[in-house]
Design a protein around this nucleic acid. Sequence first.
RNA 1: CGGGGCGUGGCCCAGUCUGGUAGGGCACCGCGUUCGGGACGCGGGGGUCGGAGGUUCAAAUCCUCUCGCCCCGACCA
Length: 568
Amino acid sequence: MRLSSMLLPTLRESPADAEVVSHKLMVRAGLIRKVAAGIYNLLPLGLRVIQKVEGIVREEMNRAGAQEVLMPFVLPAELWRESGRWDVYGKELLRFKDRHGRDFCLGPTHEEGITDMVRGEVRSYRDLPVNLYQIQTKFRDEIRPRFGLMRGREFMMKDAYSFHATDESAEEEYQNMFDTYSRIFKRCGLAFCAVEAETGPIGGSFSHEFMVLADTGEDAIVNCSKCDYAANVERAEIKGPEGKPLRKEKQEPLKKVSTPGMKSVEEVSSFLKVEPSRLIKTLIYETDKGIVAALVRGDFEINEAKLRRMLAVEFVRLAEEETIEKITGAPMGFAGPVGLGIEIAADFSVKDMENGVTGANEADAHLTSVNPERDFKALYGDIRTAVEGDPCPRCSSPLKLRRGIEVGHIFKLGTKYSESMGATFLDEKGKERPMIMGCYGIGIGRTAAAAIEQNHDENGIIWPIPLAPFDCEILPVNVNDPETLKTAESLYVSLGEKGMEVLLDDRDERAGVKFKDADLIGIPVRVTVSSRTLEEGSVEVKQRRAADKRLVKVGDAAGEVERLLKND
RNA sequence: CGGGGCGUGGCCCAGUCUGGUAGGGCACCGCGUUCGGGACGCGGGGGUCGGAGGUUCAAAUCCUCUCGCCCCGACCA
């Protein structure tokens, strides 16, 4: 490709609305342009990168035995009503009506679509298992899109769905996808780790997220400092205390103190001059089985997913202000477990607390010297979010906290969709059973963005070779020098003949401009051609990620470039 | 949805407080010089100052409404 004829608008300055490096560089290097919040044009260079990611994903999925299909982007509401998600998916599902007034939505994920496809075609255990995938545009009307391609509303996703006759088969495929994903992200040149994860609104029984490690990541993950345990903080288990609680302090009598206007943990702890870890935070939740109170030590956070599991309910959400006032008899901010007439779920962290502080269920008052068991009864469980230093659930070594970008997510779904949508098959005995499903997603654009987060310097992008839009760039320093141009052109041909994707910067620009642009767009290998080195029959070869350049005879240049690309 | 901020030529921004007929840098076009790390000179094109309404002799600037974008939060009482 000749740069002179390419739409490659590079920018000297970062756009004002970009926050993270990958977003800034993607715009500056002419890969993307914003059309609306969370919605982007992919320019030629950007599309090439996306296609590289797609290529790797496609190859590995095919190798793993999955088959590519393509479902529509626009889906009828009936499918979503069947699965029950039309009502629960929320505003992220962009809904609209066609000219006849029928309800449709833009697909944010395709469990419904694929289940519908498969139930119509697959009848027998002999047709199972099957794994179908697509690489397609998705739309999720995110509350707050940000960071360029990292969290867009419209984005490219590879989503795969597998159908099985048995649990064992489903788990085998889960492992197969786990291995496939590991290969994909490794081939993309990314440092990543797989962590245990929450299943969220997709549902299902267990899942792993593939996280590219980066400080700018939106997700927090923990991993064990000793063993190989790793999990999303939302998921990470925290073991409860064993045996009888330790009693170190003398239990003081319950006391009511005045705390005018002090609602938050910070306010109460600084007002009463006690550590936040001595407070018991009381949150009132509504669930499908009624209203409950959830307790956690003041310096920890309630984890709603864990709470939902512990209570064995469909949903939990914080109660409205009105409900809180009705239940506690006090304005928001003064709830406490003592004398509260509802079910109380408490985190293990509360169990051993002594002489703690809670709201008094009365305006502007708190209770001190609150002691669990003596002053209130609760059910205990692990319902808080893990923090740095918590013990590993496997080996008890301290957990480390890190940040990551979720680029892939695999789920074992079970029969959630096949049951609600009637995707059944006949087993060997002629008995009708729901298919067991798994689903497996990769964010294509996000993977490209994550690659930049991990591979850049102050001058621009440093593409891992497998994702680079071109393998090599030829940079004739002065295209008005006939000898320089001639050599560049002949190298362009010979590198191309070796099967490399070559970018020739044949623009009549000053050298500095070309060098700056070359660094910005980050092609892995650069060949600089100039009259200066041609005098001795050489050109200069440089890797984008390395500082050193070397002079190579013109005749050896193509081989040298090939060698660098292979050995990197 | 709540809080904050920003909308001025393709991009980055000044001008707004204190109203007086729109400006710089980059990019773009022409000519010349220059030519291995974002050159220089001269000349040039391009702006409903996000939109609507209002105040005023006069509005980018003040007032009202509205749209868009960005950041923080949106569950921790």
